[in-house]
Simulated scan of single mutants.
Amino acid sequence: MDLDAELVAAVRAADPSAVAKALADGADPDSAASRFTTTVLSEAAGTGLLEIARLLVDAGASLRARRPRYQSPLRSAVSNGHLDVIRLLVDRGALDVEGTDRGSLLATALAATWHRPRAAAVEVLRYLLELGAGAAPGEEVPIVQALLGSAAPATIRVLLHHGADPNSRRSDGTPALVLAARRGDHAAVDVLLTAGADPNAADGHGHTALMHAIERNERAVSTALLLVGADHVGALDIARGWQRQNVQFQLGEMSVGLDDIPIIRTAVRLHPTGYELRGDPVEFRRWGRLVACAAEELGDDEWDARTGTPYALAQAVARRLVADPAKCPTASWHRVELSRAELATVRQAFVELAYAVRVPLPDGLGQEYVHDALDELDAQLP
């Protein structure tokens, strides 16, 4: 076994004595098992091997990522919640050489609180905030990132304690409270309200958190907002328009019926008894344009290979969403009946536009809209 392989084996065996021997014999402290793997320092940092990490750093191991797509030693430690290793690396200057091609270090710490939720992840987040870590250029502010990732209340409270504004807005102007309400995250709504979030803050369409909660039938959220005195303006019409009779009672109605109130809807709802989408024609047209955009960008062969659904089906679904919405005879919404395969095609188009392909989206539609539509569709799928 050559010296570099000996060092790799010693690190993976978590054997500090063997690591020290290999380094003393001349092994490269930046060794890796292969050209497709990270350095031994990144491996040690990611598994929390403090003593070994110190030996490698003392021997001159690089604090940078081996390649742009690989995690640096510091980011590996942050991802896995190893605060003692993080402190070591920061003391040795790791923050000064940490790149942002993989996003900010704080975004990595936030993601760890929901991907690997444990007390250590919160401690790492708190430590980085104390160091002044923030968002990278082009990223949403941290509290918005947390809400979009459905972070636990403990994470949101840490951010607020370290100066996050409960009235922060996403880059498209959507208030943090509205983001939480749209997702039915009543715990986050409560934390934000307790921290001073304005319950009546509106998004770019003039819709408040209460209006969004009622439209999506998120009763726990609407109850929390009503208990702090959220303004009822527009809320009752939305409840009537979606025939949310339970909410109409919450809003003070003494008797309710199946009202047919025309409203402007911001959501497309999946009826629980089948694959019937309900909403306004304008929203269905937006969905159809997005499906068509994704299909056209990928083309016939790549669409079939990447999504596992036929290209011709994607084209047909896009046309149906634009042309087929039919007025419900007993309500003001429109509806489109889709097969299971057609609904899967819509979802695949959203996934491609949200995470895979970067193309100019149809006029008036941005990445925020795509992510919101995908999140809400996923939340409703059986």
Rank of each mutant, 00 (worst) to 15 (best):
L290W: 00
A323R: 14
E337C: 05
R286Y: 04
L251C: 10
D280I: 03
R320C: 01
H232D: 11
A295T: 05
G234L: 09
G229K: 13
V247I: 13
Q243S: 13
R269A: 05
T273W: 14
R285P: 04
Q250L: 12
Q245T: 10
D259W: 00
D231M: 09
L321C: 03
A239F: 03
A312V: 15
E253C: 11
H271E: 11
T273Q: 15
D301P: 04
S222C: 11
G252W: 02
R265M: 04
E297V: 12
R340Q: 07
E276C: 08
P325D: 07
W287R: 11
D259N: 04
L321F: 03
A318H: 02
E297G: 07
P262D: 06
S332P: 10
R306D: 04
F249H: 10
Y311F: 15
W287S: 12
C328L: 14
T330D: 14
D280Y: 02
T309V: 05
V268T: 04
W333H: 11
V247M: 14
V233H: 07
P325T: 07
G257S: 11
W333Q: 14
I261R: 12
G308E: 11
P262L: 12
T309N: 05
H271W: 14
A235N: 00
C293M: 05
A331P: 02
V228S: 04
G288F: 02
Q243M: 13
N246K: 08
L313N: 02
Q315N: 11
D260A: 08
V221R: 03
R265A: 09
D304C: 13
D300C: 09
F284H: 04
W287G: 12
I261M: 14
L227A: 15
L258S: 09
A323V: 14
L298R: 08
E253F: 08
A305Q: 06
P262S: 01
L298E: 13
R289D: 11
G234S: 11
V221Q: 10
D300Q: 09
T273V: 13
T266E: 00
A230D: 04
S255M: 05
G274F: 15
E302Q: 11
Q315W: 06
R240W: 00
L270H: 01
R335F: 15
A312Q: 15
L227W: 13
W303V: 10
G257T: 06
V282Y: 04
A312P: 05
W303K: 02
C293A: 08
A326W: 13
Q248F: 07
L277P: 00
G257I: 00
D231Q: 14
A295N: 03
A326V: 15
R265K: 07
W287I: 11
G257Y: 03
